[in-house]
Amino acid sequence: MKKNNLPIIPLAFIAGAAVGNSIGSMLKHQKHGCNKNHCCHHHEPACCDKSSTITDEDPVYIRETQTSGHGL
């Protein structure tokens, strides 16, 4: 392999990971950045995709994800 091709390997891995998983695009509603329960319902609607809002029509197991485990 030519020397000038060597840097391509780490770059390629980084690029592959970035494309495949968009690792560079970090979560906006992680615990440390934005609380899900707040951002989904209150002051930061941009954190949640409105088309995927959980409603009463969703099965219980999906609705339960919005609680801390103490019931709906």
């Binding site: 992680q30 615990k31 609380n35 995709d49 959980i54 801390s68």
Partner: peptide, 23 residues
């Protein structure tokens, strides 16, 4: 991917529904 890339030390006492969204 974000969860996997976060170290255990930074996830202390954090719940699954604090790191994932409705999608």
């Amino acid at each position: 991917a974000k969860l996997v890339l976060t170290s255990e030390e930074k996830l202390g006492d954090i719940k699954i529904n604090e790191v994932f969204g409705s999608e």
